[in-house]
Design a protein around this nucleic acid. Structure first.
Length: 303
RNA sequence: GGUCUGAUGGGUGAGUGGCUUAGCCAACGGUCUGCAAAACCGUCUACAGCGGUUCGAAUCCGCUUCAGACCU
């Protein structure tokens, strides 16, 4: 197969920066399908809170990885990488260009560069470790990590439970140090990649975020969240827009407080996204409205 | 015109002479290989102005400015 004809256009940017609209325009321009690189839009039942593409957008352009999973199904960027590459292969069989859009930096990295093949973790192991974390505290896990993987112990953020937990579960389930298996090599993909970032002034971005949250409330976010409340412990629902409303349902905060917290947490999320994307030197940055310049840039990069 | 009260960092709000960078919020910067819209880390040393008292003042005194309340 000719790898030179396969092109993946990756659209990145902060939440609410206008990625979806740009992606749809590009998809039409190139007659290309869209695959999502969003860790939350992949779930069913939460279209409002995760700002999934509208019905019109979904009807106009073929979308993938939107509302494909139940919130109770565990998912990860590793699984995403495998599925996305497989899906891309099918798509490239019938078209040259595919658009990828989404705000999950790690998923984008998994898609473009791949991540190490690490062992599957036994279902109950994480639960066990989580229980230990809750009962004995982080220190206990950190100490064990020091024994099992001195090298990683030295370099991890030892106050981050998630990192400690992950390292430990890999060490335990594989019987080998995590650091040994975490080589971080970049996988060679058989398609070309161009990354386009949407740049937007902070003030304007925050304004769009604030207004979008209000719009979500108008569209029925509260009802959507209420329907998901019974499944609130699912990781898929540890998401801005849902966590806050769950707190409201639990009587911890008022509805208005929840609304303001959702705005604030979305702003913070956007900030983290920008921190992530800023260090990716492969991204070409443009204003969302500069469609012609973007197309020109894409063409120049693909050569 | 007079009396009184108050003036703390972007916001809130303690702190009535000598370890307070109070705390909180917002904001900002960052980390990142399987929970990533997650989790975690870091930054933001102010006390209206001027002078005085004191070994030492956000804290005491005086004046000035500003704000509010009240009295003629």
């Amino acid at each position: 197969m000719t790898s030179t004809k396969r092109r993946l256009i990756v659209i990145v940017g902060a939440t609410a920066s206008g990625k979806s609209d740009l992606a749809v325009r590009l998809a039409r321009h190139y007659s290309a399908p869209i695959i999502s690189t969003d860790s939350r839009q992949i779930f069913r039942g939460i279209p409002i809170g995760t700002a999934q593409p509208t019905a019109e957008q979904l009807a106009a352009v073929e979308h993938h990885f939107i509302a494909e999973r139940g919130v109770d199904e565990p998912y990860s960027c590793g699984e995403y990488e495998r599925e996305a590459i497989e899906r891309l292969n099918k798509l490239f069989a019938k078209c040259d260009t595919v658009i990828a859009v989404g705000g999950s930096g790690l998923y984008i990295q998994a898609l473009c560069e791949g991540i190490d093949d690490l062992p599957e973790i036994d279902e109950t192991l994480r639960a066990t470790l989580n229980r230990r974390l809750a009962e004995k505290g982080l220190e206990s896990l950190v100490e064990e990590l020091q024994r099992l993987d001195k090298e990683y112990y030295e370099e991890v953020d030892r106050s981050n439970p998630q990192r400690i937990l992950r390292a430990l579960e890999v060490c335990i389930s594989s019987g080998r140090p995590y650091s040994e298996q975490r080589v971080g090599s970049r996988k060679q993909r058989d398609f070309q990649i161009v990354k386009v970032g949407i740049a937007m002034e902070r003030e304007q971005l925050y304004d769009r975020i604030n207004r979008r949250v209000d719009a979500m409330f108008d569209e029925g976010l509260v009802e959507e969240a209420r329907a998901m409340y019974p499944q609130r412990d699912c990781n898929a629902l540890h998401t801005v827009g849902f966590s806050e409303l769950f707190d409201h349902f639990a009587g911890l905060i008022t509805l208005e407080e929840a609304r303001e917290l959702i705005k604030r947490n979305t702003r913070r999320y956007a900030k983290r996204q920008m921190t992530w994307f800023r260090r990716d030197a492969e991204i070409g940055w443009f204003e969302a409205a500069e469609f012609d310049k973007i197309v020109e840039y894409i063409e120049s990069q693909f050569g």
